[in-house]
């Protein structure tokens, strides 16, 4: 028996793909990377949400928390040093996640061929969440770009003042299209997590009939926590619970 196999019509790998080695270019390997980076990004989304919920405690708490991120582990690390390590790590994870998804999607579209079933497919297991992973993911990526321009760089927010985190958030969400875009994206992020947090156990080979039932509940809990926790902020601004301070 040999591991060298004849590669044919559908998913031929060449150039950079063969250079990267068989594991990282195999579908199974790329799904592993998607699952691992998915865990990392999900962890970030959770921590980001918990930190930002300080907005409900008060402007000083949020601004102080934001400042503390810049001086994390200072003076062992330079100011913003740890912050940049996180930023580089997150960007790398996002790139790997999106790159794998794109390569796999293109391979899958190719594998389907051109002719579709004429009768409407009667899907029995695929749900709205699993079927919106791709385009929902694109929406989330576009949102992240806007979100960075809006609240990190400030170029998409005319009232942006560096370091004035609380007021930046309030000014941004007082614009109703921004608040609506935010909430709609959170719905798709929740759907993405609902399928992803369940699915990653399957991709990593950790699925087991003994705990398959709590996998579903874990995914529901994570999706709802992200949806409710994050959407609460723009909704509170729109309803007038959070207003510009000092």
């Amino acid at each position: 028996m040999t591991t060298k196999t004849r590669r044919l019509e559908v998913n031929r790998r060449s150039g950079w793909q063969s250079w990267l080695g068989p594991f990282f270019t195999s579908d199974v390997g790329m799904k592993w990377m998607m699952a691992l980076t998915g865990i990392g990004l999900l962890g970030y989304v959770l921590v980001h949400m918990i930190g930002n919920l300080k907005i409900f405690i008060g402007p000083e708490d949020l601004d102080h928390y934001a400042e503390s991120l810049r001086t994390l582990l200072y003076p062992i690390f330079p100011k913003e040093g740890v912050l940049w390590l996180f930023r580089i790590g997150l960007t790398a994870m996002a790139v790997i996640h999106i790159w794998s998804a794109t390569v796999l999607t293109l391979r899958n579209w190719k594998a389907r061929g051109k002719i579709r079933y004429d009768a409407r497919r009667q899907y029995a297991a695929a749900n709205y969440a699993s079927r919106t992973m791709r385009w929902g993911g694109v929406l989330i990526a576009l949102f992240v770009i806007f979100h960075l321009l809006d609240l990190t760089i400030g170029s998409a927010n005319p009232d942006y003042v560096a370091g004035d985190v609380y007021n930046n958030v309030v000014y941004s969400f007082e614009r109703w299209p921004v608040a609506l875009f935010y909430v709609v994206t959170m719905v798709f992020l929740a759907l993405h997590i609902y399928h992803g947090a369940w699915s990653l156990f399957q991709s990593l080979g950790l699925a087991n009939p003994r705990y398959d039932s709590w996998r579903r509940w874990l995914a529901v809990a994570l999706a709802l926590a992200i949806l409710i926790g994050n959407s609460a902020i723009p909704i509170a601004v729109q309803l007038g619970f959070l207003t510009v301070s000092g």
């Binding site: 590669r7 068989p22 199974v28 796999l104 190719k110």
Partner: peptide, 13 residues
């Protein structure tokens, strides 16, 4: 690897 040379990949539908 033979499978992947012919078919698509799993998205856990």
């Amino acid at each position: 690897e033979t499978m992947e040379s012919y078919f698509g990949s799993c998205t856990n539908f």
